[in-house]
């Protein structure tokens, strides 16, 4: 019986080691770029291989960068979440632009007039939420040149104790 368990343990080690190695080999390019901390740059490099559809990718921004840009009034902040979530709480100064709404009118997603070279920052509910990236892509396609994604989103901002607001849209 003891030998049996030893065999199972070896088998488990072998299965995990083999499958994990396959996974690491499969994702080796992603992992090397993550190791160098340039996964965001990878998305940019990809279209370069195929210049026909070379569209600028939205760039991710961190909490501090967003705070500085907002304090300097150098960027416009767009909340990609629903009107309800926005009303419950949003980053102070943000404009609500639900992804659905922008998707309905992708050639002209913004109702207000904004110069094409203005800096736009999108956000939603943090790292697990991809709406901000989708919204940013729509904005890029619509012709805005400087579109950024604040990946930490509302939860990170709120937890950092920075100004938030409720209601309105």
């Amino acid at each position: 019986m003891k030998k049996n368990w030893l065999g199972t343990a070896l088998e488990i080690l072998l299965i995990v080691a083999l499958s994990a190695s396959v996974g690491i080999a499969w994702n080796r390019t992603l992992l090397t770029s993550a190791w160098r901390g340039e996964v965001a740059a990878r998305a940019e490099a990809a279209p370069a291989a195929n210049p026909a559809n070379a569209v600028a990718e939205p760039m991710p921004l961190g909490l501090m960068q967003v705070k500085e840009l907002l304090d300097a009034k150098q960027a416009m902040l767009l909340d990609a979440r629903s009107t309800t979530s926005f009303a419950e709480g949003h980053i102070k100064g943000a404009l609500n632009l639900p992804l659905e709404e922008a998707g309905r009118n992708p050639s002209r997603p913004l109702q207000v007039k904004v110069p094409a070279e203005a800096s736009l920052i999108t956000y939603c509910n943090g790292f697990s939420c991809h709406d901000s990236m989708e919204l940013a892509k729509i904005l890029v396609k619509a012709g805005y040149a400087n579109v950024y994604v604040y990946e930490g989103g509302f939860p990170e901002w709120r937890d950092a104790g920075y100004p938030v607001a409720k209601g309105g849209s």
Partner: peptide, 18 residues
């Protein structure tokens, strides 16, 4: 940071094998 990527690379393949 890198741990997340390492997990994302390896874990699904372990799940697949099992």
């Amino acid at each position: 940071y890198f741990g997340s990527y390492l997990t994302a690379a390896a874990l699904p393949f372990v799940e697949l094998a099992c």
